[in-house]
Design a protein around this nucleic acid. Sequence first.
RNA 1: GGAGAGAUGGCUGAGUGGUCGAAAGCAACGGUUUGCUAAAUCGUCGUACCCCACAAGGGUACCGCGGGUUCGAAUCCCGCUCUCUCCGCCA
Length: 420
Amino acid sequence: MIDIKILREEPDRVRKAIADKGNDCDLDAILEMDIKRRKLIASVEQLRAQQKSVNSEMAALQKGSPEFIAKIEEMRGVAAEVKQGDTALKDLEETWEEMILTVPNIAHDTVPVAPDPSGNVVDLTWGDAASASPHAKAHYDADIFNELSDFPRGVKVTGAGWPFFKGGMARLIRSLINFYLDEARDAGYEELMAPLVVNEASARATGQLPDKEGQMYVIPQEGFYMIPTSEVPVTNFYRDEILEADDLPVFRACYTPCFRREAGSYGKDVRGLNRTHQFDKVELVKWVHPDESYNELESLKSHAETLLQKLQLPYRVLLMCSGDLGFTQTKKYDLEVWAAGQERWLEVSSCSNFEAFQARRANIRYRAKGEKPVHVHTLNGSGLAVPRVLAAILENNLQEDGRVKIPEVLVPYFGQEYLG
RNA sequence: GGAGAGAUGGCUGAGUGGUCGAAAGCAACGGUUUGCUAAAUCGUCGUACCCCACAAGGGUACCGCGGGUUCGAAUCCCGCUCUCUCCGCCA
């Protein structure tokens, strides 16, 4: 949620931000509604004040006395007016709330302004794509992948995009998760285990609702949603809370499977590990002091990078342009790993700063001693997603004999130097 | 899943229709006093929104959440959620 004060005081800045993001919300209508809303609040509150003062006079009167009865008569009309005003105000607040939720967050000054993904800037490329195995193959064409995964049975048991993984592949997935979590802990992130389903209030606070309900699996009987990322339960951990300033920053790391409907996806994007309805991911979330959020974004991104470096996987970092920035983000880096077999870059992490946008909606604040509560800044990033990193390992490290060389840092976790 | 009890401010806990945003205590913060500590004592001590210049000041709302009754609701009625106790079931 945008800061209403910024909206009132710097409408032109917001207007530009909306245009830069390619969003089309009607700012003038919102500002007009704001004025209308405040007028109505003022008039209803004035009526209530009158009601209140007469009520305390009545408290001092003899019940049933002529004066008392006269007051009741007098206040009957005011009571009706208040009720009417309240109803009108409730309606108005509801529409206004909906409207203000359509205003996107304002991109940071350092974000390139461009309408579409072609405006994203390659910030850096690490490693040498040519260093990949000369035998690289798309993972879904490699024998070892087809031996150790079972898509047809996944279709039988659940549906398309819900694969089984077997033996060494399953163990390799587990190795990656453990590697990610251990690295996160060393970097100061406290590990969290989270619920895999959340209620509506949580989905709303992190912005999955309204609008993106189509991306989530729903459990209608309970009104629950299966999490599309652990960002949802983890960010909501502090929903409606006030943290001590001294406790900031707070870093958390959380491994969960993630569930996404991915409606409308097709073609090579969804082959093999590239996109499945359920996938594993370690998510990193930060709650920080507003002055620090951009430094924290850099360190978040750097941490995710070191994971790929340690895995010896070539990758690049994209600074996302305004048009490719999400609704809630002020600045975002995407990390893409090089998959030598498919000869394409696969997104494995997305590191974003939300400033106070998410915190405002989730009502997460901090308080310095003797000060008023202030919204924290929140950030999150994957550290990292599993399947696409796995795909890159399978492709880049595929040997002539069909085995896959396990990255050195994973050997202690995996227990063997080769898969297969 | 069945039966019962409950939900009040940072915490404990009073309050069953009217000057209650809410007693009291604790904790916290500021001052005074005492040689230090401890104690005593005085004061401050919630959040959001609205008016106003986001100041001073004024106002409204909030006693789990949502409705209702009433001139007036923490207090009465209805629905929901959550917590606790007992029973059942269960990894």
